[in-house]
Design a protein around this nucleic acid. Structure first.
Lengths: 219, 219
DNA sequence: TAGATTGTTAATCGATTAACAATC
DNA sequence: TAGATTGTTAATCGATTAACAATC
């Protein structure tokens, strides 16, 4: 019976961080790890590691810690890496290109299989990752049963692209356009807003400078 | 006397979202806004908007809501946009290029003034945003009193670049390399890890599929 | 065994939301 | 004035941490 408990974004983010760190530890020759080690490496508390593990049904040995191989295997299955995850990109501009060339995905079982763009200049079906015209997107996604899409088109085109995606088997979207997408059916949408991130850094740097004061004494 | 209260990342993220939305509302001809409107537009509760505003010392009229112009002005000063924020980029690969071409920064008072790369091929001092050799980074940052840097180099070079930045006036860094940077002095570091974000989406999509169950019944 | 580490519960912390008195 | 909206306090919610009994 499903408990209906759903891990939140942060919990899953930590899980992937654990996994990445475990890969590294393994490559360094380690075979077992303690919650303590892992916590230090990822930058959280040991309590948190154990609680997260408990949450995902991962258990270790009361004195020997956790076997790295078993841990990696368990996480692989949790993160759905039994099969390769096919992803398409819409928008082959700079960000799209950056993602197409990003090496990190391969070892995580994520594979970007195609990109789409309205600009005929950017279309090229003979690259490692082919870039097709926009019209091909829906047929392609349906035929290959694509579950994941990345949106890197300008803001004014993002909702339109998203609507088109919702008319395919796509169930998860990573959105780089700086806006909230409105979904007409269930779909997991995560936003990456580089502008906001940079502005946030700017804020903190300035705040530090002017010895900020809040509420009572503001300007 | 400084209260020592420090807004967290999420609060500041919301603040910038409010600001962006206010710009949009203004361009649509609105002059005043209620916490209710703004909340709906950004996707939070009205209570949250009012609490955030109170936190930053922003006040409105008990019946007339908030004057958009005054609100924008207030936020501009809070987010440190009195002067233009100069930013440098290290690593002129795909992500670096994407950021150099990103239009959104200009209107926020953020200006990317230069980029640096070890690859002589990528260097070009005659573009709108010049790309210099790595050796120029520290002298440039010192001479122009740069406070903000963006790291878009491969993982193996990121810490080295960061160390170099810490030897300049830089106080805030946006890091795209998928690793934790270690700081030898105080510096505001925010990480953008696209790989993690995508993996997180993958997780949720898979979880939905296999009707996940946790803790008790796992594998 | 003695010592160390897990697994889990209770305590703490912080952030969000609801409610409502103040007031325009 | 009556009605609506703010500003603020108290209640709620959820996530993190500390503590410790179980146990390898």
């Amino acid at each position: 019976m499903d408990k209906g408990i759903r891990p939140n974004r942060n919990t899953v983010l930590r899980l992937t961080q654990y996994k990445n760190m475990l890969h590294r530890l393994k490559s360094l020759g380690f075979e077992r790890v303690f919650s303590d080690n892992l916590a230090g490496a990822v930058g959280v508390t040991a309590s948190q590691v154990r609680r997260d593990f408990a949450f995902f049904g991962i258990s270790g040995n009361k004195r020997g810690g956790y076997a790295i191989d078993a841990l990696i295997e368990k996480m692989r299955s949790l993160l759905g890496k039994g099969s390769i995850q096919k992803v398409i990109i819409v928008g082959a501009g700079h960000i799209g290109q950056a993602l197409m060339h990003y090496k990190g995905f391969v070892k995580e079982g994520i594979r970007i299989v195609a990109a789409f763009d309205i600009d005929a200049q950017k279309q090229d079906q003979h690259q490692r990752i082919p870039v097709f015209s926009m019209e091909c997107m829906q047929p392609y996604a349906r035929e290959h049963d694509i579950k994941l899409g990345i949106i890197c088109v300008p803001e004014h085109a993002a909702q339109e692209v998203f609507d088109q995606m919702l008319d395919t088997p796509i169930e998860g979207v990573l959105n780089f356009a700086p806006m909230r997408l409105i979904a007409h059916r269930d779909c997991e949408v995560h936003n990456v807003n580089v502008g906001l991130e940079l502005e946030t850094v700017v804020y903190f740097v300035n705040a530090k400078h002017q010895g900020v004061r809040y509420a009572d004494s503001a300007s």
